[in-house]
Nucleic acid binder design. Structure first.
Length: 421
RNA sequence: GUGGGCGUAGCGUAGCGGUUAACGCGCCAGGUUGUGGCCCUGGAGAUCGAGGGUUCAAAUCCCUCCGUCCACCCCA
């Protein structure tokens, strides 16, 4: 029996006191995206399930055990999007964006869904901000995306992150590498963990990021992908590195960095906070030169990046980045007697019309109780309407900070408050 | 899917076999003659996660389920 009044497992309510973090991340992210020439795109939160099966990869955990799939009333198999890249690529194809000047630079912000067991840094509904640059394989574009990501965190105020970088080749050189990796592991299977024995069969690349202690020495001595890259991929990677160095973006070469989605080629990167927490990658991305073709269009190179907003916010808190105080209304309109209520309603309305945020006392409480509310609301001024004010067409303006108050003519109230608030 | 910790008022906690379950914060109302923050007084609010069992007696012990947190898997 699931309690009725409880958010579904793995989902959260973002309460008013959390909103400053969300506003900060949202405004920083969208401002930066525009600064780099990216345009906003919004895609549906659900799509034909097969889009993700093809796009993300049949063999991935995301598709095999984490996708929210459902049959709609027309019998179509749909899925809540587990990430944003497949949607954006679908939109690129559907709207013939290959006719636009390439690359097409797009950014998005919105929820994604994965049916996981929740834990620290992992929810079933989470928020992705992402950028995609489609239609160009120039490593300068890789550098642009990485710089955008890096700068995002810097401007947000998280400065102790590390950038992990690797290249996982393309369809030319990856089979060669996988063969080398498997050959290396062949005679060591007896010494690795059971998970790794399974990975050897299903997803050999994942062997490289096993966390089991006993597997670490074997991973450390495994051949790095960068030794097996074909000439084109090696050149691409080398150029990217030279750009990152020119941009003074510090990165760590991590030959063990692999990604869980099938579509990645060549460049892959992750951005992580210093602690070795479990779910610690706050942003990641890479090149996916084969995805558009896999979805049925012409071969089109592309690179993208996405960050988990909830994880970003967790890190803002961890790093103690101060947030601006949430906006509070400027004025609380209180009244003494029932006779003054109508005047109070009108005053509150006029204040708002003048652009002054105002809340009015409701519920017919005592003036004392109204003042308590005014205080709790955190307003700058209380506007009090009593019998005297009513009789003289005035209002008492009380500055909450120090209790100073003055009586002004009703018609001057807006101007007076505007000057002081 | 697997493993571990935890579930007592809105929040944070105490109580850990025995009369009407306690405290802090918060909330509401008062502290006379039109007004907040401090202080004082009073009040509302908990079927002690749910169901079953042990016992004369269970919030307290046992089992099951649910929820939650953390970890694995995997990922943002």
């Amino acid at each position: 029996m699931i309690p009725l009044c409880r958010a579904p497992r793995g989902t959260v309510d973002v309460l008013p006191e959390e909103q400053p973090y969300w506003g900060h991340v949202y405004h920083t992210a969208t401002r930066l995206a525009k600064l780099y020439g990216y345009s906003r795109i919004d895609t549906p939160m659900f799509e034909e399930a097969s889009l993700f099966v093809r796009g993300v990869g049949q063999a991935t955990d995301i598709v095999q055990k984490e996708m929210y799939v459902f049959q709609d009333r027309g019998g179509e198999m749909m899925a809540l999007r587990p990430e944003g890249t497949a949607n954006v690529c679908r939109a690129y194809i559907q709207h013939g964006m290959h006719n636009l000047p390439q690359p097409v630079r797009l950014y998005y912000w919105g929820p994604a869904f994965r049916y996981d067991r929740p834990q620290a840094g992992r929810q079933r509904q989470f928020t992705h901000f992402g950028c995609e640059a489609i239609g160009e394989d120039d490593p300068a574009l890789d550098a642009e995306i990485i710089e955008l990501a890096w700068r995002l965190y810097q401007e947000l105020g998280i400065t102790d992150l590390s950038l992990q970088l690797n290249s996982i080749g393309d369809p030319n050189c990856r089979p060669r590498y996988l063969a080398a990796l498997k050959a290396y592991y062949e005679d060591k299977l007896g010494r690795v963990c059971p998970d790794c024995r399974a990975r050897f069969q299903t997803n050999p690349l994942r062997l490289l990021d096993c966390k089991v202690e006993g597997c670490q020495p074997i991973i450390a001595a495994a051949p790095p992908f960068t030794d097996c890259l074909c000439q084109e991929c090696a050149k691409h990677f080398q150029e990217l590195r030279s750009y990152l160095e020119a941009l003074a973006i510090p990165y760590t070469l991590n030959p063990r960095l692999v990604r869980g989605l099938d579509y990645y080629t060549r460049t892959v990167f992750e951005i992580q906070p210093p602690e070795q927490a479990a779910q610690n990658t706050i942003g990641a991305g890479g090149r996916y030169d084969g995805l558009i073709e896999e979805l049925g269009s012409r071969p089109t190179p592309a690179i993208g990046f996405a960050t988990g907003v909830e994880r970003v916010i967790a890190n803002l808190k961890r790093a103690g980045v101060p947030m601006p105080a949430p906006a509070r209304p400027a004025v609380f309109v209180a009244y003494q007697t029932a006779a003054a209520r109508s005047a109070a309603v009108r005053l509150a309305s006029e204040l708002r019309r003048a652009g002054i945020a105002a809340v009015m006392a409701v519920g017919g409480r005592s003036l004392k109780a109204q003042m308590r509310q005014a205080d709790a609301t955190g307003v700058l001024y209380a506007a009090i309407l009593g019998e005297e004010e009513l009789a003289t067409g005035t209002v008492m303006l009380r500055r909450m900070e120090d209790g100073q108050q003055e009586r002004v003519a009703l018609q001057d109230a807006c101007q007076r408050l505007k000057a002081n608030a």
